[in-house]
Nucleic acid binder design. Structure first.
Lengths: 334, 334
DNA sequence: ATGAAAGCGCTAACAG
DNA sequence: CTGTTAGCGCTTTCAT
C-alpha cells in the first residue's frame, strides 16, 4: 500500500504538501494540487484512517449497541442508523448486548479503546450508572428508542404516552371496554408511558382502569403468547389486547388462534413499532408506527453534532407515533 | 485518557516494560508485572487500539457486507457473525449495500482505509471483478451464503442443490405433480442450484420438468406475491409452490389467500432459509432451514485463520440444509 | 506557497 | 529482566 511518503516522493513535494491537498487545508497552488492529485490517483493511494486517527483523534466510527439484531425492530433501527451514518462519513460498529449489563460494559470499553467517535445506545441500560460514567469520560453518546429521563443525554424517541393513548383510543372507538395491555417491563420508561397513555384514554372515555388488565411479560413472541393465553383463559376475558410491541402482539394473535378465537371478530389486537412483521402476518396487524427511518436519521445527526462540538446543550427529540389501522382490530359486537 | 507513558512513569519503569506486560511478550519479573498491572488498573488505563494498529497492522475489526439488514435473513446472519467475531476479539462493521455495485466498492475501499483485518461478504457481488481485486490486494476475504465458484475464496454455504431437492421431494411425496418454483435470480449460483435440485427430484420421480413452472422474481415479498399471483391465475395452475426464500414464500401465501385459495388445502408452499418469519406467519411455513448460527460461526473461523495466516489453502464449507415441516404443505387431494 | 520537524501512542528490535 | 530507540503514516505548527 502506498503511503504519503510515496506520493510525496513521486510528486516531488513534501509530505506536508500532500497532507494539505488531502485535507484541503492550508494554501496550495492549483498547479501542485492538480499534480499531487494525479499522482495519488495513479498510485491508487488511500490515506490510512488509522494513522490520521492517531493524530487527529477521529476514527469516523460510531458504535451502535442493540439488544439483538435478530429482532426485526432493532434490525430496522440499525439499518436506518447505518444509512445516515454512512451519508455523514461514519462507519457503524454493531454490538449485540442481549440487554446484558456485562456485555454492554465490555462493548463500551472496546469502543473506547478503538477510539470510536461516538456511541449510540438502543439497548436496555438498566442502570444509568454505566451511562453516567461514559458521559463523564466525555464520550459522545446518544440514545435511540429509550428514555433516560434522569440523564442529560441526547435522545431520540417517540412519544410513548401518545402511542399508548392512540392505541387505546382506537380500541375504545371500536366499542371495546375490556382492554388488556401486555407491557414489556414497567421499569423501562417507554413501557410505562405507553401504559400511562392507555390509562389516560380509558379515563377520558369513562372506562374504569383496572390493574388486572395490565400484564408484564418478557419481550419475545413466546412470552407474549403465554401472557395473552393466560388472559384469554380467564372467565372475564378481554375483548381487545394492546401489546407493547409487534412481537408480543403476534404472540397474542397466536394465543387467540390456539383457543379458536378469531381475530378481530372475537379479539382485537394492536401492536407497537410497525415492523415488517406487522404487514406480513395474518391478519395484518393494526399497530402504532414508530418512524424508524426518521429516528435513525436524527440520532445520527445529534451524535454527529456532538462529535463535532457543534452543540452546547443536550437535546431530546420526541417524534410523533401514528396509528396504522390494518385488520387485527374490529368493531366489538359487530 | 492515560497513555502508556503515564503508566510507565507512575510505575517507575520504561514504556517497553509496560508494553510487554500488556501483550504478555518478553520476560518480565512477576513482581514488576504485578506492579504495572496494579498501576494500569488504578489509572483505568486502556491501551489505544489505534496506536497499536499503526505498528502491528491489526485493528481487530472485520467488515460485513450485507444487502439489507432490515431483511430478516441477513439480520440473522449478521447476528450470528457478530457473536462469533466478538468471541474471537473482533468487532464488526456493518455495511448495507442494497446489492449495489458502487456501494460495495465504496464500502470495501473505506474498510481498506480503516485497515479492517478482513471482509465478509454476504452481498450479491454480481461481478467477480471487484472481488478479484480485493483478493489481489491480499485482503482477507470470506463469503457467506453466496457461491463464487470461479474464485478461490473462503466460502461457507449450504448445499443449495440438496435444499432444492429436499423441497421438491417433500412436495412430491405429498402427491403434488404441478410444482412451480419461484427463484430469485438465475444468475446467482445458489438460486440456480436450488432449481437444479428441484429438477433432479422431479426427474427421479418421473415427473416431467417443465420450463413454464420456473419463474424468476425479485427478492422482496411483494415480488413473490405478484409472481405467485400470476402463476395462480393461469388456467393450469400449480398445486404447490417452492419459493427460493421465506419472503417469497410468504408472498405466495398472501397471493393464494387473496384468491380465496386455502393453504395448504388448495396450495402447498415451501420456503427457504427458515427465518423467524417462517414460524410467525399463518400457516407456519414449511421451509428449508439454513443453519445460520453455524454458518456465521464458520465464516468467522475461516477469516480469522486467514487473518492470522494459519491457512495454506482456501476452503469451501458446505453445510447441510434441513427440511422443516410446518403447516403450509399438505397432501394433495386430501 | 511549500517544507522541516515534532509529535500522536504503541511495538519491536537491540543493548545492556 | 529491563530500557533505548527507531519507526508506523499522518497532522500541524513554524519557518522560509
Amino acid at each position: 500500500m502506498a503511503t504519503i511518503y510515496d506520493i510525496a516522493k513521486e510528486a516531488g513535494v513534501s509530505i506536508a504538501t500532500v497532507s494539505k491537498v488531502i485535507n484541503q487545508t492550508g494554501r496550495i497552488s492549483d498547479k501542485t494540487r492538480q499534480h499531487v492529485m494525479e499522482v495519488m490517483k495513479r498510485l491508487n493511494y488511500q490515506p490510512s484512517v488509522v494513522a490520521s486517527a492517531l493524530t487527529k483523534k477521529r476514527t469516523y466510527t460510531i458504535g451502535l449497541l442493540v439488544p439483538d439484531l435478530a429482532n426485526p425492530f432493532f434490525a430496522e433501527i440499525a439499518r436506518s442508523v447505518e444509512d445516515r451514518a454512512h451519508e455523514l462519513g461514519y462507519n457503524l460498529v454493531i454490538c449485540n448486548t442481549d440487554n446484558d449489563l456485562n456485555k454492554e460494559e465490555r462493548y463500551t470499553n472496546l469502543l473506547r479503546q478503538k477510539s470510536a467517535d461516538g456511541i449510540i445506545l438502543a439497548t436496555g441500560v438498566r442502570s444509568s450508572a454505566s451511562l453516567k460514567k461514559l458521559l463523564q469520560q466525555k464520550q459522545a453518546i446518544a440514545v435511540i428508542a429509550r428514555d433516560m429521563p434522569a440523564l442529560a443525554v441526547d435522545t431520540v424517541l417517540v412519544d410513548d404516552f401518545l402511542g399508548g393513548y392512540l392505541a387505546a383510543s382506537h380500541l375504545l372507538e371500536l366499542g371495546h371496554r375490556h382492554i388488556a395491555v401486555i407491557s414489556e417491563d414497567l421499569e423501562v420508561m417507554s413501557s410505562r408511558d405507553r401504559v400511562r397513555g392507555y390509562r389516560q384514554a380509558l379515563e377520558e372515555a369513562d372506562v374504569p382502569f383496572e390493574e388486572k388488565w395490565v400484564r408484564v411479560s418478557a419481550f419475545q413472541l413466546q412470552d407474549g403468547k403465554e401472557t395473552a393465553g393466560r388472559l384469554l383463559d380467564e372467565p372475564d376475558r378481554p375483548t381487545a389486547i394492546f401489546a407493547c410491541n409487534d412481537l408480543l402482539a403476534i404472540g397474542a394473535i397466536q394465543a387467540a388462534r390456539e383457543r379458536g378465537l378469531a381475530v378481530p371478530r372475537d379479539l382485537s389486537v394492536v401492536g407497537f413499532d410497525n415492523t415488517v412483521l406487522a404487514g406480513i402476518i395474518d391478519p395484518p396487524l393494526t399497530t402504532i408506527a414508530q418512524p424508524i427511518q426518521e429516528m435513525g436519521r436524527q440520532v445520527v445527526n445529534l451524535i454527529s453534532q456532538e462529535i463535532n462540538g457543534e452543540k452546547n446543550a443536550k437535546q431530546r427529540v420526541v417524534l410523533v407515533p401514528e396509528l396504522v389501522v390494518r385488520e387485527s382490530t374490529g368493531q366489538w359486537g359487530a
